[in-house]
């Protein structure tokens, strides 16, 4: 075992690498076959595949280094996600000092608690202390115009971009709770979740991201009936059902990297994929309301960080708490 990578994870990464090699070859063949034609979809596909390579390799490298690197990675992603969120959120000029707390101080404490494996503090910092503190700071700034909207907007930025996303690396600590109980896990040593915890996190990430990919593929090929036409015409029932079922099957097939039986893995994958779909739907509503297509242009072909993490930010907290509730004592 090097870092958090053991032989099981090596197999998983070889599998992911294989899929990406296959996707790259297929895209290259399509590119060659359709050369000279208008192929913006194909260009986007190539950009997406290239970005997937970078994301997969980046995650592999951080796992090689260890849990601290993974936590720092997600702190960075939270920061970038906040930046995108605040770009489109209509905050007031008078919110500036509240936003300084939101961006520089609260996320760092949140991820620090996570790094300390201090679950009790991690779980309440944002929903209790930060959610009460931020409107207080805002009230002290003295601007009451649209106060409720501004307070809600700032809390939501924190909820989605920081609290929800930080549940992804929090999954790495679940095996400690599963094997030694919740109390023993409190304040346990860094990396005590080991390769098993890292694999559990990868299980969620792989299943939910593949669910996004297959929803796109099924939607593009068979999609006719939009789920919520006023929010996003691209999210169809055909894409939703096809994508979620495909990814659930993959999740069931990945039971061997988790502590679950195949049907437990399938159920958790199903719930995660559905939450992921709703995450995308909610983020699309926000984008539509603000009149933007993407949260940014950070990842070529994909849009912004939040465009890629929207589904994970909704599925990770639910996945974490379902596992914690049913599998730990």
């Amino acid at each position: 075992m090097i870092g958090l990578i053991d032989s099981t994870m090596l197999k998983l990464f070889i599998g992911i690498g294989g899929i990406l090699v296959l996707a790259t070859i297929v895209a290259a063949i399509l590119w060659f076959a359709k050369r000279g034609q208008d192929n913006s979809t194909l260009k986007n596909l190539n950009q997406r595949i290239a970005a997937w390579w970078v994301m997969a390799l980046g995650l592999a490298v951080t796992l090689l280094i260890g849990e601290t690197a993974v936590i720092v990675l997600f702190l960075g992603l939270s920061f970038l996600a906040l930046r995108e969120f605040l770009t489109i959120a209509p905050t007031h000029r008078s919110d500036h000092k509240t936003l300084v707390w939101l961006v520089y101080i609260i996320p760092v404490i949140n991820y620090w608690f996570l790094w300390e494996h201090w679950y009790g503090a991690f779980a309440v910092l944002i929903p209790v202390y930060a959610f009460l503190f931020l409107p207080i700071r805002n009230a002290l700034a003295g601007d009451t115009e649209n106060f409720l909207q501004r307070a809600a907007m700032i809390q939501w930025a924190l909820m989605v971009c920081v609290y929800a996303i930080s549940y992804i690396p929090a999954i790495m600590q679940l095996p400690v709770m599963i094997h030694n109980g919740r109390e023993a896990a409190e304040g346990s040593a860094l990396s005590s979740g080991g390769a098993e915890g890292a694999l559990l996190m990868l299980f969620l990430v792989v299943v939910v991201q593949l669910s996004d990919v297959f929803q796109y593929v099924w939607g593009k090929t068979l999609g006719k009936h939009p789920v919520a036409p006023s929010v996003s015409p691209n999210k169809t029932w055909e894409g939703l059902i096809g994508g979620v079922l495909t990814a659930t099957a993959i999740g069931a097939g990945l039971w061997w990297i988790t502590p679950f039986t195949w049907w437990q893995a399938a159920l958790l994958a199903l719930v995660s994929c559905l939450m992921g779909f709703f995450g995308g739907l909610v983020m699309s509503s926000i984008k539509r309301d603000r009149g933007v297509k993407d949260f940014g242009a950070t990842i070529a072909g994909h849009g912004g960080i939040m465009d890629r993490l929207d589904s994970l930010s909704f599925s990770a907290p639910v996945f974490f708490h379902l596992v914690r509730f049913f599998f730990t004592t």
């Binding site: 906040l82 995108e84 605040l86 770009t87 000029r93 500036h96 000092k97 300084v100 961006v103 520089y104």
Partner: peptide, 18 residues
């Protein structure tokens, strides 16, 4: 566009935005 939202007049710490 938006630079004033990153560092408005009278503030010393920039808030990240695109």
């Amino acid at each position: 566009k938006n630079l004033s939202r990153i560092l408005p007049k009278g503030e010393t710490i920039p808030v990240p935005r695109l």
